[in-house]
Design a protein around this nucleic acid. Structure first.
Lengths: 153, 153
DNA sequence: TATTGTTATACTCTATAACTATA
DNA sequence: TATAGTTATAGAGTATAACAATA
């Protein structure tokens, strides 16, 4: 067997694992688990708003949409739902009368904290039987993989 | 810094990379690229039908739905579209008068082959600057990661 | 004239349920 | 009675377009 054939097989195993990971059900399943019991406003649809806002800080709907890959109209609609639930606040941008700053409320920060803890706990369980060394090497490779051009939007 | 803190950071980097990979746009973007120019019946929606059928061979709509995580009604609708385009054939199951066997036509196999080549080529490009050893280790870890319980449907 | 946020509209996709045929 | 496939229906979610306010 040539080394090219081996490399083809390695590529094929990556392709297969990637396809499995991208299966429609996985994302929904994971996010449904993470957001369950946190109120009707917190679900797979509003999760990216919450986590995106926690990541980048207060910003406009257009900016947040760019960050999470969603149209500003969609951001606005979800923000309305989160605002009604008291997880997010809208305030006028002092430097631009057209713009609105979206920001997490203290309660919103609490929910994000819970979501992060849950995800961390799922990942801990997932790597339970990996050595720290194995986990570390995988993390390095995984980050490198995700940051690569294949996933450029 | 304690080793637990380090482990937390490793877990957080995995969580972040995973969230990036699961962003809605990525799947659609990749599949749109892979299926472009192969006819109106071949898109992100019918891709799983084609690749699933190539993977498991001729089977019923219910079986294929289980494989790709979709209701049999959805499988049936997509199959109708692929059948009209000549990529898929329906034939009665000799052992069960109720069932229908879905199967790729020769043209369907050609399309799947093209899709696989395109995906392999994207992955090759992605790992261009990785050593074979790095790529191999990542593949091993990635497959192990995906097969783990976090992603059980 | 261009841009921001919001809202209305049309479209896609999905699960659920209803229906027919067969086991 | 149960199961397979198909089709109809309703619901969720999205982008596009339209609108009002501001730059």
């Amino acid at each position: 067997m040539t080394s090219e054939t081996v490399d083809d097989q390695v590529g094929a195993s990556i392709a297969e694992a990637l396809a499995t990971l991208l299966r429609r059900g996985y994302r929904e399943n994971l996010y449904a688990r993470l957001t369950s019991g946190l109120g009707t406003a917190v679900d797979a649809s509003t999760y990216p708003i919450l986590s995106g806002l926690a990541r980048v800080g207060a910003c406009s709907a257009a900016e947040l949409g760019l960050e999470i890959g969603l149209d500003r109209s969609g951001v606005s609609r979800r923000a309305t739902r989160l605002e009604a639930a008291g997880l997010l606040s809208r305030s006028p941008d002092p430097s631009d009368g057209r713009a609105v700053q979206l920001e997490l409320t203290p309660h919103g920060h609490e929910v994000v904290s819970t979501l992060r803890t849950r995800l961390a706990s799922e990942i801990d369980a997932l790597f339970e039987d990996w050595t720290p060394r194995e986990k570390h090497f995988f993390a390095t490779g995984f980050v490198r993989f995700v940051e690569s051009a294949l996933f450029t939007n």
